Amino acid sequence: MNFAHDTRVSLETTVDLVNGVAADRLTTPEDLDSFCAKWEFTGSRTHDDAELHEVRRLAVRLRGLWGRDEDGVVEEINDLLEQGRALPRLVRHEGWWDYHLHATSPEQPLATRMAIEFAMAMVDVVRAGELDRLHTCARDDCDGVLVDLSRNRSRRYCSTQCGNLVNVRDMRARR
């Protein structure tokens, strides 16, 4: 499935957020600043512990979508959209992406903007019948999540590191 650029980026951002919080890589406001810079989040920021807490809480909530059935995912998406009072509009940032969707104002809290971006991306995933692209890592001792955006649906691990660890373990077992 070939999703729009902003949908793909939102899905990848959410995976990074969920896995980052689970691995305790987002523990300080500075970590969140780096995360937002990496994923080019625009809009208002408070850069404080309260903002970090809300984003971490959101990550836990979004993690709950992996493994849910379609009706459960749709219910959560609709709840996120309603809570954030989503109002989709096309936006173009000077020197960045071409037109893409924003569904909140830039003044909304960061966690609200993140939730709405993910919910809007998931609307595309559900409508395309592609929920089976949401997986958990195939490594036995990893709880990481992933969105398989590969053409042949072959992605199994949340990171290259997990894939490498499994390959090394398998190679040692064969010896």
Rank of each mutant, 00 (worst) to 15 (best):
D6A: 13
T7A: 10
V9A: 15
E12A: 14
T13F: 04
T13W: 01
T14N: 09
G20A: 08
G20I: 09
G20C: 08
A23M: 07
R25W: 05
E30L: 11
E30N: 07
L32H: 08
L32D: 09
S34F: 04
K38Q: 14
D48V: 11
D48Y: 04
L52P: 11
A59I: 03
R61T: 13
R61V: 12
L62R: 05
L65F: 07
G67E: 06
G67A: 07
R68I: 11
D69H: 13
V73K: 14
E75F: 07
E76M: 09
D79I: 03
D79V: 11
E82N: 10
V91T: 10
W96M: 13
Y99I: 01
Y99D: 14
H102D: 12
A103R: 10
T104M: 03
E107S: 15
E107Q: 15
Q108L: 04
Q108H: 15
P109M: 09
L110D: 05
E117C: 12
F118G: 01
A121D: 06
V126C: 13
D132K: 09
R133N: 04
L134D: 00
L134V: 02
R139S: 13
R139I: 05
C142E: 08
C142H: 02
D143I: 00
L146N: 00
R153A: 11
R155Y: 06
R156Y: 02
C158H: 05
S159Y: 01
L165R: 15
R169Q: 14
